[in-house]
Design a protein around this nucleic acid. Structure first.
Length: 292
DNA sequence: CAACCGTGGTA
DNA sequence: TTACCAAGGTT
C-alpha cells in the first residue's frame, strides 16, 4: 500500500503549528528567508530572528542594500553564518536581475547562492503553491518508514528521494503543496527521529515500518558530527568576538578567543577567504562592509 | 560521495 | 556527560 495522503492532509489541518511563514499574508520573500534560516537550525531559534529580518528588510532590495556586517550581526547566533552572506547575495541577484521578485521557477531558484534542491522546491511550493517534491530530513524519514519499512532514512540520494515523494503528490498544485508541508510537519511532530509518537500518527494503519515490526535502522552508520575543538568552533568564537564590537579589533584581541595559535590563525584566514571577516587598512579585523 | 560549515537543546 | 539532532548547501 501507499500513503493515505488524505489522512495526512486531515491531520495537518488539525495539528499544524501556526508558524509565521505559513500564514497567508507571508510573502515568498518571507518564505525564502525562513527556509534559509531553517537549514539545520531549529524553529524555536529561527522565529524571533525571522520577525526581526522581515520587519527590517521586507523585500530583497532592502536586504541587498544593507552592509554585510549588519546582516551578520542580525543573523546573530543562528549558526552557519555563510548562509547569511549567501542570502544577502541572493537578495542582490533577485533585486537586480529579477525585479525584486523572488523567482517561482525551480531552476531559476537553483541558480541563486545558498539555494539547493530542497530550498528551491520549498520556495516554489510554500511561496507559490506549486507541485514539486520537497524533500528534507523529515520527509526522508517519513518515507523511509511509511513506504519502505525502514527504521530511518539512509544516506540521501537526491534523485531517488525526490522520485519517491513525487509519487505521493496529488496531481493538482494546491493539494500537492499542502501535502508537502504536511509531510514535513508529520516528520517534525510525530514521525520524529527519536521516540516517534506512532499513537498520534494519521497513517499508522498503513505504515510499512509498523507492519515490519518497527525494525531498528540497519543502514550504514551515520557520521557523528563532532564540534568541540573543531575549526567550526574556533571560527564561531572568532566571529563572536567581532559581532560583539562596533569597531575593528587588533589581532591581539582575537588571539584571546582560542589558545592554539596555529588553529586560530588558520581559522582566521579561512574566515577572510570566506568573506566573513575583513581586514582594515590599518591591519585590524572587523565584520565585512562596515569599515571601508 | 564525503567532508566541512555553527550553535544550542535534549535524552 | 556524551551523543544525537535540528526545514541543507557547497566543494
Amino acid at each position: 500500500m501507499s500513503v493515505d495522503t488524505d489522512a495526512v492532509l486531515d491531520w495537518f489541518a488539525d495539528a499544524a503549528r501556526d508558524l509565521p511563514w505559513r500564514r497567508p499574508e507571508c510573502t515568498p520573500w518571507g518564505v525564502l528567508v525562513s527556509e534559509i534560516m531553517l537549514q539545520q537550525t531549529p524553529v524555536a531559534r529561527v522565529e524571533p530572528i525571522w520577525h526581526e529580518w522581515l520587519t527590517r528588510w521586507p523585500k530583497p532590495s532592502a536586504l541587498a542594500a544593507a552592509a554585510q556586517g549588519k546582516v551578520l550581526r542580525a543573523w546573530g547566533k543562528l549558526g552557519y553564518p555563510r548562509r547569511a552572506l549567501r542570502l544577502h547575495a541572493a537578495a542582490e541577484a533577485i533585486a537586480t536581475e529579477h525585479g525584486d521578485v523572488v523567482p517561482s521557477d525551480v531552476d531559476t531558484l537553483l541558480a541563486l547562492p545558498g539555494i539547493g534542491a530542497y530550498t528551491a522546491r520549498a520556495v516554489a511550493a510554500f511561496g507559490y503553491g506549486k507541485r514539486c517534491p520537497v524533500v528534507d530530513t523529515n520527509v526522508r524519514r517519513v518515507v523511509a518508514r511509511a513506504v519502505h519499512g525502514a527504521g530511518d532514512a539512509g544516506p540521501a540520494s537526491n534523485t531517488r528521494d525526490m522520485s519517491d515523494v513525487d509519487a505521493l503528490l496529488p496531481a493538482a498544485d494546491e493539494p500537492a503543496a499542502r501535502l508537502s508541508a504536511a509531510l514535513m510537519e508529520l516528520g517534525a511532530l510525530v514521525c520524529t527521529a527519536r521516540n516517534p509518537r506512532c499513537v498520534d500518527c494519521p497513517i499508522v494503519a498503513d505504515c510499512a515500518w509498523q507492519r515490519a515490526g518497527r525494525p531498528e535502522y540497519s543502514g550504514p552508520a551515520k557520521p557523528v558530527q563532532r564540534f568541540a575543538g573543531t575549526d567550526r568552533q574556533v571560527r564561531g568564537l572568532l566571529l563572536d568576538v567581532l559581532r560583539g564590537t562596533a569597531e575593528p579589533v587588533p589581532k591581539a584581541r582575537l588571539d584571546t578567543a582560542w589558545s592554539d595559535a596555529g588553529q586560530r590563525d588558520k581559522c582566521l584566514d579561512s574566515l577572510l577567504v570566506d568573506g566573513l571577516v575583513e581586514q582594515t587598512a590599518d591591519g585590524r579585523f572587523a565584520l565585512p562592509g562596515e569599515h571601508a
